[in-house]
Nucleic acid binder design. Sequence first.
DNA 1: TTAATTATATATTATTTCTGTAGAGTTTAA
DNA 2: TTAAACTCTACAGAAATAATATATAATTAA
Lengths: 137, 137
Amino acid sequence: MKVSTKSRYGMIILIDLARHDGNGPVQVGEISKRQDISVKYLEQLILQLKKANLITSIRGAKGGHVLAKDPRQITIGHVFKIFETNKNMGGCFCNQEDCRMADACRVRNVWQEAIETFYEKLESTSIADIKENICCE
Amino acid sequence: MKVSTKSRYGMIILIDLARHDGNGPVQVGEISKRQDISVKYLEQLILQLKKANLITSIRGAKGGHVLAKDPRQITIGHVFKIFETNKNMGGCFCNQEDCRMADACRVRNVWQEAIETFYEKLESTSIADIKENICCE
DNA sequence: TTAATTATATATTATTTCTGTAGAGTTTAA
DNA sequence: TTAAACTCTACAGAAATAATATATAATTAA
């Protein structure tokens, strides 16, 4: 059970934008240099963040990316839900597609609860809360 | 973020033993047949469950395995902690070994809390609770 | 217009992790 | 003597993840 680097990078991108909030759009090239992530990879990640309405992009020369929301409204939980697929989470121990217990399955229920509380915690913290309290640049 | 099949199998093994509790030791061959897991793989998993004091084994002919505890005292959380390595969980977003924020890092703290509540939930449910409420045999 | 920059989609490679099997010998107890 | 667990190790295949690469289109500032 581990977190993908995509979630980690996703967070880093948003924190980077939060830190440069108000200075005009930030270009992928800048983020790439600062965070040591390839431009092409960044584009893929940013695309997902855009689809989730966390980033707005300005096209053309002098374009770039900015946060689409107040950093206080972007939570860690939200970002993780974008990048984590949660495969095999919330399921049963039996590997059957057609579970004959369906809703009555205790395992499914416990799982569901555990994951919900997990994300609730992560949703209690925003980009704004942490942007100055992490060790990376 | 997904659960390894080892955790799943670990649960299945314990549930199998719980269901045959009181009928003498259960042999790996039986579990293998019932659950369709190879004997060799079972041995590896059982070894880990033994080290965690969840299973006791009886050597020699007519030997086998039994639960080391009351099924009510074996929780899902406990089993998962055995098999999930939690790599990258609880860490920071920065990939640095020598985090210069250390304890002050907000991310680490939030993480820690989220994982704790997650396991707390899973620890509220025992093998005894679920052994009759899952769809697999 | 031109250069800069994002948008989009797809393909490919590399790396890592996970699964599961297998072997070979040891120990224990009926 | 035999059945079964114990232990340790190696390996192979599969799957997932990570990252790079390619190509083309669209947009906009200067």
